[in-house]
Amino acid sequence: MLATIGPDARAFAQSGDNARAEEIGSLVEAGRLEEAIREARRAVEQYPRSATLHRMLGAALFKKGMNSEARQEFRRAIELAPNDPQNHFNLALVELSENQNAAAAQELEAVVRLQPANAQARLLLGRAYHNQNRTLPAIEQFQKALAIAPSLPLAHYHLGFAYQSQGNLSAALQEYQLEIKANPDFYEPYAHAGGIQLGQGNLGAAEELFRKGIQLRPNAVQAQYGLARVLLARKDLSAAVGALERVIELKPDHVEAHYALARTYQQLGKKDEAAREFRMVSELHARSAQRRSGIAGSTPQ
């Protein structure tokens, strides 16, 4: 079975379009995108009312990065088969890839209306909502996605992130831990959970999380910085200096690391080094002020 063909698509499908769709799908999977596009265009000419073939052409175009044309094909597929959730889903993917969250949400709402148990669509809908300042409906969608598919990849992570953005840290930590359990090779929840554990004073747990994060992504700044903060919390100042320098090596404009370094030098009695780092903090803030949107709390991260 190559592609999902909804009932409406089937009604509009003309003889032979499924075979063509199978062929095009194989080309896409093989990475032979130009060939796939060429074949799909021919097929669409031959079967202009086949929603499946428009969808396949859209998929090949999307994979090739030709979003505008892909969008047109998915829209045509929706016209031909408005009740096929797959077409809405695919169009939503195009919109999401361009951060068109409102348009994506509209399509994903159609998906979940047609297919309420589509956990993946609910996860993406949650993301689209969150990106539109609709955090509370986003949380609701993440929760629904998890109710349908408790181990859906990334769902616990996104729910945790949404909780964390509400200041609800204990719930966030719980979700990050569930994501780690379900998806142990995914870096992000280690760094976030480590930060929360650190704040709670659970230094051992924080260190373990940061170190696992670093194992997965050795140059991950957030985990490296977290590890440095653990060392600072343990008053292992000389080791912390080394860890902070490592962070700065990875990201020279990491203002928090410069600040932590300044305060560490201060504690070590290295006044000149501390002064140098404090100056750097001030300079980095001045530089970034231009890029910011107006209020400190809205700083893009």
Partner: peptide, 12 residues
């Protein structure tokens, strides 16, 4: 992953 304009509570 991070929402573009938002940072979560710093974790603590």
């Amino acid at each position: 992953l991070a929402v573009a304009w938002q940072r979560p509570a710093a974790g603590n």
